[in-house]
Write a protein that binds this DNA or RNA. Structure first.
Length: 271
DNA sequence: AGTGCGGCCTGTCCGC
DNA sequence: TGCGGACAGGCCGCAC
């Protein structure tokens, strides 16, 4: 489940291998991802080079001279650098083949991912233009969340998972950050003090940074073909631990449903 | 405008 | 052992 740290790890992993390589071909084995893959990606990318791999939220932006490929990994998407002659396995939907015979291979079993193509400024694309700030910038701070949340009745967990509020905070990190900040996931966003939002934004940053650092240790895996991600093994305090004791106080962790999301929390530490 | 939910998918796990 | 069903999850798009 790629969250922001995995997307950032992917970005760092693929960038050196795709930038400056001439694109020989684009192979689409299916176009049925979250959105249909536009057919003109093939024609437009052939013969071009990517100059940069950037990230906005969980979107990867692969810029060529004539446009930008926008990739989202969805739930189960993976990008790997493999030799283009390596036989594709199940759910290898797209290859971007380079002249040096390496290729960027997109595998996505659940097909919640996306590959789009725009010739305009990608940040103006309708999927990206209304996104909230990046969580690891100074712009994202307690004051921002406090101001933004006034009058909001939605649970704070839904609020911080809303990409129009802040990008890149998925279920795992929202769950962990709320635990670290001692805030109950169901508390109305508009009824949380600025002091607590300061604590929460700090928790989000600490957790995301730690996860990115962990991802960074296994970038070499991007050249392997065995599909083992290997990163992202940091200790989770609450996520997936419902029914087990809180590591801080020993109280049995509970879980509740918010929207379609499972939230695990400590009923004693989180208020 | 804010809120909440349906739907897209398939692999994994559980119970019968 | 085989099978059905529940579940997981990001996020768009719609309805209220």
């Amino acid at each position: 489940m790629p969250e922001l740290p995995e997307v950032e790890t992917t970005r760092r992993g693929i960038a050196p291998h795709v930038c400056g390589q001439t694109i020989e071909n684009v192979i689409l084995r299916t176009d049925k991802l979250r959105f249909p893959i536009p057919a003109n990606v093939q024609r437009d990318l052939r013969g071009k080079q990517f100059t940069e791999v950037a990230r906005r939220g969980k979107y990867l932006l692969l810029s060529a001279t004539n446009g930008t490929a926008i990739i989202h990994l969805g739930m189960s998407g993976k990008l790997r650098i493999v030799n283009s002659r390596l036989t594709p396995i199940k759910h290898d939907h797209v290859d971007i083949v380079f002249a040096n015979q390496q290729c960027l291979r997109f595998n996505d079993p659940r097909r919640f991912g996306a590959l789009l193509w725009t010739t305009d400024d990608p940040l103006q694309h309708s999927l990206l233009s209304k996104l909230g700030p990046e969580p690891l910038t100074r712009e994202f701070n307690g004051h921002y969340l406090f101001t933004k949340s006034r009058q909001r009745k939605a649970p704070v967990k839904a609020f911080i998972m809303d990409s129009h509020v802040v990008v890149g905070v998925g279920n795992i990190y929202a769950t962990e950050a709320l635990f670290k900040a001692g805030i109950h996931p169901k508390r109305a966003a508009g009824r949380i003090s600025e002091a607590r939002y300061i604590k929460l934004t700090k928790a989000i940053k600490v957790i995301l940074r730690a996860a990115i650092k962990q991802g960074g240790t296994t970038l070499k895996d991007f050249l392997n073909s065995d599909g083992k991600p290997g990163y992202f093994k940091q200790r989770l305090n609450v996520y997936g631990r419902a029914g087990e004791p809180c590591l801080d106080c020993g109280t049995t962790l509970k879980s509740l449903q918010l929207g379609q999301r499972t939230s695990v929390y400590c009923p004693s530490c989180q208020r």
